[in-house]
Design a protein around this nucleic acid. Structure first.
Lengths: 216, 216
DNA sequence: GGGGTTAACATTGTCGACAATCTACCTTTC
DNA sequence: GAAAGGTAGATTGTCGACAATGTTAACCCC
C-alpha cells in the first residue's frame, strides 16, 4: 500500500517542457537534423522563450539536441557511429541494472513482470508499432525495477534515441516473432537468476539491434 | 600531427557556466545541500540571470542540483544510498569503457598511459590531495580513451559526484600506497588484455571505494 | 504559553524588448 | 561572368523589470 501523504513534487516548467520535447523527438515530430526555432515553439507551447530555452538546455545536456552558437538548436542526427555508441551505453546501463536485480533484487518477480510484456508482444501479432513500443517498455521496466536513480536517468536518454531510430525506419522494421522470443529468453534467464546467461543474451540482443538498424 | 584548421566550436554561455558550476561543486566551493542564489551568483559571474538559469538547468538534468519550485536550486546531498548508486553507475560506465578498449582498442597503449598515472601516484608520496586528483585522472583517462561520447558524458557527472565525496572527507582520506597498487593491477590487466581480470579488479575497486566512503 | 493570522522581505518564475550575429540575396567591380 | 562587398531579414543571446510564491517574524487571540 502506498500512502496518500507524500511530498508533492511540483515539477518546474522547464522540466515539463523538456519532457514534452523528449516525447516529440522520440515520436518523430521533430526530424533528425531539424532546427528548433525558439519563437515558433514558444508560441505553440504557450510559454515565453525563457522557460523554453531552459528546457532545451536540458536536452542539449543529454545530447539529444546540439547547439550551434548564434545559429540555433538542432535535433541530433544519428549516424551509424552514433547508433553503435548509443547501444554501447545502453548495454552498459541495462547490464548493470540486470546485474543489480540478479544480485540483490527479487529476480523472480522481475522476470515474471518482463514475461508479461513478452506475452503482449506475442499477442500483438506482428504489428510493428505495438511491438516496438513493447520492446521499449521491456527495457524501461528492466531498468526501472533495478531501482537506481542514476541508471534510470541515463537510460531515459538512450531510450529516446532508440525511439528515434525505430521511428525513422518503422516501415522496414522487422516485426517477426523472433524479437519476442529473444526477449522471452532474456526474461527467463533473469527469472531463473542465471547471471552468465543474462549477460550473454543481453550482449547478443544489443548486437542484433545494431545489426538490424545498420542494414537499412 | 593535428591541423590548425579545424571547425572552431564556440561554446555557448550556458555550457561555460555549467562547466564552472561543476568545477565549483566538485571542489567544495558549494557545500552539499547549499542553496544556489541566482542573483548573487549571476553578479559574481558577471552575467544576467537568464544564461545562468540555463546553465543550472543542465546541472539539474545531471542530478547535481535539485530544484524545489519557488524555493530555489540546491546542491545535491549525497546520502550513503546515493554513494552506492553513484558507484553502481560509475562501474557500469567504466566497465563498458574497459571492455570496449580491450575488445577493439589499443589496450597496450591505454595500459601504458594508465601506468604513467600510477607512477605519478607512487611519486606523490602520500599527499592525499594529489593522490585523489590522480585517482580521478586515472578513471577519466580510462573512459576518455574508450572514445565514446555517451560514456564520457555520463561519466563526467559521476566524476563530479566522486569529487564531492572525496572533498567532503579529505582529512580522513586514506592515502596509502594500497590505492596506487590497486590502480597498478588494473592498468596491468588492461595492458595485457585480460578481460576477466579487468572486470574483477574494476568491480572490487568500486566495492573498496564504497567501503572507504561509507565507514567515515 | 500555544496556535493562528498577518505583513514585510527575499527569492524565484516569467515576460517583453533590445543587441549581436549569421545567412542569403543583391549589387558592384574588375 | 566570377568574386568581393554590402545589405536586409531572420534568429538567437542577453538583459532588466515585474509578477508570483514562499519564508520569517511579529503580533494577536484563546
Amino acid at each position: 500500500m502506498t500512502s496518500y501523504i507524500e511530498p508533492l513534487a511540483q515539477e518546474s516548467t522547464p522540466s515539463i517542457i523538456a519532457d514534452k520535447l523528449r516525447k516529440a523527438i522520440g515520436h518523430g515530430e521533430f526530424r533528425p537534423g531539424a532546427q528548433i526555432v525558439e519563437a515558433d515553439l514558444a508560441r505553440k507551447l504557450g510559454v515565453s522563450r525563457g522557460p523554453l530555452r531552459e528546457g532545451m538546455q536540458r536536452l542539449t545536456q543529454e545530447g539529444l539536441l546540439v547547439s550551434i552558437r548564434n545559429r540555433g538548436l538542432f535535433v541530433i542526427d544519428m549516424t551509424p557511429a552514433d547508433i553503435r555508441d548509443m547501444y554501447l551505453a545502453r548495454e552498459a546501463i541495462e547490464r548493470a541494472a540486470a546485474y543489480k536485480i540478479l544480485r540483490d533484487g527479487d529476480f523472480e518477480t522481475v522476470g515474471a513482470a518482463l514475461l508479461a510484456i513478452v506475452d503482449r508482444m506475442l499477442a500483438a501479432d506482428g504489428d510493428p508499432a505495438a511491438i516496438g513500443e513493447l520492446d521499449i517498455a521491456f527495457h524501461e521496466l528492466l531498468v526501472r525495477l533495478a531501482d537506481s536513480p542514476r541508471l534510470s536517468r541515463m537510460h531515459r536518454t538512450s531510450i529516446i534515441e532508440t525511439r528515434m531510430c525505430i521511428h525513422a525506419l518503422e516501415e522496414t522494421y522487422l516485426a517477426t516473432d523472433a524479437r519476442a522470443i529473444e526477449h522471452q529468453r532474456l526474461a527467463d534467464a533473469i527469472r531463473t537468476g542465471d547471471i552468465a546467461r543474462t549477460d550473454e543474451l543481453l550482449s547478443a540482443h544489443m548486437d542484433d539491434a545494431i545489426e538490424r538498424l545498420s542494414n537499412r
